[in-house]
């Protein structure tokens, strides 16, 4: 039996692919909170604009930060994708052109609207803005996520690059795009539910109670729809790249199922088990994506590229500062938490 992808690859490629899988999974969790949270606010805004429920308050409060975190955590996989498939990633960026660059102003608009939403109760409760604002924010965030999917698919489909360029089109509606985007959207709800439960710890009992049922519902609904859309997505992808992805897809599916079970049983009491299973599921998605990517790459050229990249220095320094940063953050975090506990009213 051969080793699991990417550990069957030459060492340098395996290292970069592993880093990509891990950093992508972390980015995706943050993106899920952002995407799911803004979807929830948009939906609540439409059906019941007045009144701040516990969850609404929570999301309004945390989403601006979640946006910053999502972007920051996106930079790490952004770095590694440029090594793993430099040509593919750049080519897709260039081909989509203005359409791809549109992600940037859209991010800025969403970011500021999130702060507006957080800063002004009047706007939140306004008959029109209270509905429109969260809907606009959600559209922006969803557009960004959708664009990443589109760009990713275009980077894989090397056969279409030349004709895509000739046509000067700005959109790449691969057959897989819609089911994939829906899967990502549905999968954001369990991520949202789990992170929200963690954020609510330490809040008064009634608040947690008030939110628990909704969060559990979101988790189950999201996971079931995501698994369904995942199967649909799988049926739209190429057969020849499935083999290496299969174990990772199982991991993704099983992780999601386990998270659903844990979530249904005791999300509020013990969210950590759900988080753990969900993380496994995210890693599964990351692994499956990379296995799929690998199937699309001109292997010899990229392996050589990875090996050359691996010979440049600096890894030791990175590891050293990673430890320094972790220690510093842990120290600051502990200190802040201790003082917050002392001042809790």
């Amino acid at each position: 039996m051969t080793a699991l992808f990417p550990f069957d690859l030459p060492a340098a490629s395996a290292v970069y692919a592993t880093l990509m899988i891990v950093t992508f999974a972390i980015h995706l969790l943050a993106a899920q909170f952002l995407l799911g949270g803004s979807a929830y606010l948009a939906w609540r805004g439409l059906v019941a604009p007045a009144g701040d429920s516990v969850l609404r308050k929570l999301f309004v409060d945390w989403l601006p930060f979640a946006m910053g975190v999502t972007i920051t955590l996106g930079v790490a996989p952004l770095l590694f994708v440029q090594i793993l498939d430099q040509q593919g990633f750049y080519t897709a960026n260039l081909l989509l052109f203005h359409r791809w660059m549109a992600v940037l102003p859209v991010l800025i608009v969403a970011f500021y609207l999130l702060y507006v939403q957080k800063g002004s109760t009047r706007i939140r409760e306004h008959a029109l803005f209270g509905r429109a604002l969260p809907a606009v924010v959600f559209s922006c965030v969803a557009f960004v996520g959708f664009s990443w999917s589109e760009n990713h698919l275009l980077s894989l489909d090397r056969g279409v690059w030349s004709s895509f360029y000739a046509s000067a089109r700005w959109f790449y509606p691969a057959p897989e795009l819609l089911p994939r985007a829906l899967m990502m959207l549905a999968a954001s709800l369990p991520g949202l539910a789990i992170v929200a439960t963690l954020l609510l710890r330490g809040r008064p009992q009634e608040e947690r109670h008030a939110a628990a049922t909704t969060l559990r519902g979101l988790l189950i609904l999201g996971a079931v729809v995501a698994i369904g859309c995942g199967l649909w997505t799988g049926s739209a992808t190429y057969r020849e790249v499935r083999a290496a992805s299969t174990p990772w897809l199982w991991l993704a599916g099983l992780g999601a199922l386990t998270a659903t079970v844990f979530g249904a049983l005791h999300l509020a009491r013990n969210p950590k088990l759900a988080l753990l299973s969900w993380t496994v599921s995210l890693l599964g998605i990351g692994g499956a994506r990379e296995a799929r990517r690998w199937g699309a790459l001109p292997t010899d050229t990229v392996v050589e590229h990875h090996e050359r990249a691996w010979t440049v220095g600096g890894f030791g320094v990175f590891v050293f500062f990673a430890i320094v940063a972790t220690v510093a953050l842990a120290f600051l975090g502990r200190r802040v938490r201790t003082e917050l506990r002392a001042t809790v009213k």
Partner: peptide, 23 residues
């Protein structure tokens, strides 16, 4: 940018750590 990434990705990754601490 590809050449910059190839030569300096660990430096960039280190910069990113500090960016994270800053945030």
């Amino acid at each position: 940018i590809g050449m910059m990434i190839d030569e300096f990705h660990w430096v960039w990754a280190t910069e990113w750590l500090f960016f994270g601490v800053e945030v």
